[in-house]
Design a binder for these strands. Structure first.
Length: 312
DNA sequence: AAGAGCGATGACGTTACCTCA
DNA sequence: GGTGAGGTAACGTCATCGCTC
C-alpha cells in the first residue's frame, strides 16, 4: 500500500499539541520532502481545479455562499451526466459513488458537449470507489432539491472506501497534502472528502475516548465509595472492639495510624496497600496500582474503539 | 528582532441528509 | 407509509502555527 507516508511536520506537531497522536510511531519531518509536498499540494489544487472544470464551473474559487448555484450533486459526481438531459430518470438505482462502466465513460467523454474531458476516473482495479455494484450499494439518494442544485450534497461512502480510510486512519490520524491526494485518487474521492472524513473520524475517536474515560472515572468513584463505606465500618468495629477489649488493640503502628487533623484511623502503609491489592483485586488499592486507560492513552485501533467504530 | 498580515490546518459545534426500527 | 432516533458527510467558526514582509 502506498499510504504509509510520513506525516508532514506541521500536522504532526499540531496533533502532538492536541494530544491526538497518542504515542503512535510517526516519522516526523519536512526537510527533503518539502518540495515533494509542495508538488502534492499543487497537484491537489489542480485536481480540485479539474474537478471544478468537470462540473462546468469557470472560476476556481468555490464560494460557499454560492453553493446553491452550483450544479447538482449528480453533476458534481458525474459531470458527464450533464450531457444527458434525461439522466435523472435513468440514473435512479445507480450508485453515486460508483464509477460508470467504461462504455458510459467513453460515451460521455467522447461527447462534444461533455465538460468532463479533464475529469478522468481511474477505472483500474486499484480504485476502491468503483468496486461496489449498484445492487450492493442501493439506490441513488438524490432529492429533487439537489437535482435542482439546491441544498447540500451528502454521499454515502462505500464499504470499501470506508474500510480503506479506516485502515489509513490506523496508520496515521492526520494527513499531509500528499497523503490526502494519494488517498483521494485511490478511493476515487475528492481530497476535500478525504479531509472531512479524517476530521470526523478524529472527532469520533475523541468522543469515544471521552466516553471510555468517563466510564473509567465512574467505576473509580464507585469503587472508592464502596471502599470508603467498608473502611468506615471497619473503623467503627475497631472502636467498638477497643472499648470492649482494650488488651487486644496492640496493632502494629505501620498498619494503622491516626490522622493528626481529623483524629481518625486514616491510612495504612504502602506495603499494606500492596498486600490489599494482591488479596482484593477489586479494591481501590488494586485499582490505583494499575495504569488507567487515561494514562495508557487509547489508540485509534484499540478494541474499545474498534468495537464502536462505525466502519467496523 | 518584533510584530502585523495572511494562508493553511485542526478542533469543535452544527446542520442536513440518510437509514432503519 | 409516516416518524423519530442515530449515524455521518459536509459545513462554519475559531484558534494556532508558520511564513513573509
Amino acid at each position: 500500500m502506498e499510504l504509509g507516508l510520513r506525516l508532514g511536520e506541521a500536522p504532526a506537531k499540531r496533533a502532538m499539541r492536541s494530544g491526538l497522536l497518542l504515542g503512535m510511531g510517526l516519522g516526523v519531518g519536512r526537510g527533503e520532502d518539502e518540495d515533494e509536498e509542495r508538488r502534492a499540494e499543487e497537484e491537489e489544487e489542480e485536481m480540485d481545479e479539474e474537478d471544478r472544470r468537470g462540473r462546468g464551473l469557470a472560476e476556481p474559487p468555490l464560494q460557499l455562499d454560492l453553493l446553491p448555484l452550483l450544479p447538482s450533486p449528480l453533476q458534481l459526481r458525474f459531470p458527464w451526466a450533464t450531457a444527458n438531459k434525461n439522466m435523472d430518470a435513468s440514473v435512479r438505482g445507480f450508485d453515486v459513488n460508483q464509477a460508470p462502466s467504461p462504455e458510459e465513460g467513453a460515451a460521455a467523454s467522447s461527447s462534444p458537449n461533455s465538460t468532463s474531458s479533464s475529469f478522468q476516473m481511474d477505472f483500474s482495479a486499484q480504485v476502491i470507489g468503483g468496486e461496489a455494484t449498484a445492487g450492493e450499494r442501493g439506490p441513488l439518494r438524490v432529492s429533487d432539491e439537489e437535482e435542482n442544485g439546491l441544498g447540500r450534497k451528502k454521499l454515502r461512502l462505500s464499504k470499501e472506501q470506508s474500510a480503506f480510510l479506516e485502515e489509513s486512519f490506523k496508520e496515521h490520524n492526520t494527513l499531509n497534502p500528499k497523503q490526502k491526494l494519494a488517498l483521494a485518487k485511490q478511493l476515487n474521492l475528492r481530497p476535500r472528502q478525504v479531509e472531512v472524513w479524517f476530521q470526523n473520524r478524529r472527532a469520533r475517536t475523541k468522543l469515544k475516548q471521552t466516553e471510555v474515560d468517563c466510564e473509567y472515572l465512574k467505576r473509580c468513584c464507585q469503587t472508592l465509595t464502596e471502599e470508603n463505606r467498608r473502611l468506615q465500618k471497619e473503623v467503627a468495629e475497631l472502636r467498638a472492639l477497643k472499648t470492649s477489649h482494650p488488651f487486644y488493640m496492640h496493632v502494629p503502628a505501620t498498619t494503622l495510624s491516626m490522622c493528626p487533623s481529623c483524629e481518625r484511623v486514616a491510612s495504612t502503609s504502602s506495603a499494606t496497600i500492596a498486600a490489599a491489592a494482591e488479596h482484593r483485586p477489586n479494591s481501590f488499592a488494586a485499582l490505583f496500582s494499575k495504569p488507567s486507560p487515561l494514562q495508557l492513552g487509547l489508540q485509534p485501533g484499540s478494541p474499545a474503539l474498534r468495537q464502536s467504530s462505525p466502519a467496523s
